[in-house]
């Protein structure tokens, strides 16, 4: 049994964020499939013993049990990325990585919720969520317009970091919740570059061909 265990649902985009990180770092791990839809297994007592919030993903790494997608990404980058490229510690870069990584947990939460409503048929005001998600994607596109003008292809550093990784699924999956890529040329460019990174993998909703 490998040291790292991911409690996972294949269609959940936050689980995909962690699967991407594990793949980029080439880390051996065990996957425990959780019946999130329709079973709500992550909200049952066994899973709440691991994560009282009753959400996925949950990561076990040795004795450490972690929940919260961004915390898991930061942990994997600190503990298992010897080169330190996914979470650079130089203060100026680290601050930017944190800003955009938190953006994926705050401003993009409406995008994640919009997809859950659209794909899993859960209750929620899809139009309001879509409106808020579009605003967040515009902020990302505006940022990447400026980054490209400055000669950079990534959100926070001159190489991809957990900021790019944590933001990317909400854009790559935006057609799932009814937002097309037409209006976001700078994000299309960024997605194309991210897709060809060694270790990239898709999930349902992100085409294998591009």
């Amino acid at each position: 049994m490998s040291e790292i265990t991911l409690y996972n649902h294949d269609l959940d985009e936050n689980c995909y964020r962690v699967r991407l990180m594990l793949s980029f770092l080439g880390l051996a791990h065990e996957i425990v499939a959780i019946d999130m839809v329709p079973g709500h297994e992550e909200k049952g007592p066994a899973m709440r013993a691991l994560n009282p919030l009753g959400s996925l993903p949950i990561l076990k790494d040795g004795d450490l049990v972690l929940y919260g997608t961004q915390a898991i990404l930061a942990h994997l980058a600190r503990a298992h990325d010897a080169a330190g490229v996914w979470l650079p510690l130089e203060p100026a870069i680290f601050s930017r990585v944190m800003q955009w990584t938190f953006f994926s947990a705050t401003a993009l939460s409406c995008a994640i919720e919009a997809r859950r409503v659209a794909v899993f048929g859960l209750g929620g005001d899809l139009e309001t969520l879509k409106h808020e998600a579009r605003q967040a994607l515009r902020i990302m596109d505006d940022h990447m317009v400026l980054r490209h003008i400055e000669g950079f292809e990534w959100f926070a550093a001159d190489t991809p970091t957990i900021a790019d990784l944590s933001l990317l699924p909400s854009f790559a999956l935006s057609r799932d919740y009814g937002i097309d890529h037409d209006e976001f040329p700078a994000l299309r460019r960024w997605l194309r570059r991210f897709r060809i990174l060694p270790g990239f993998r898709t999930m349902p909703g992100i085409p294998d061909y591009h």
């Binding site: 097309d180 890529h181 037409d182 040329p185 299309r188 460019r189 194309r192």
Partner: peptide, 15 residues
């Protein structure tokens, strides 16, 4: 589209 936004080997939607 701006010419620079459509790189060789890529596609995008426009209305």
């Amino acid at each position: 589209a701006l010419s620079a936004s459509i790189e060789p080997g890529t596609s995008a939607g426009a209305v």
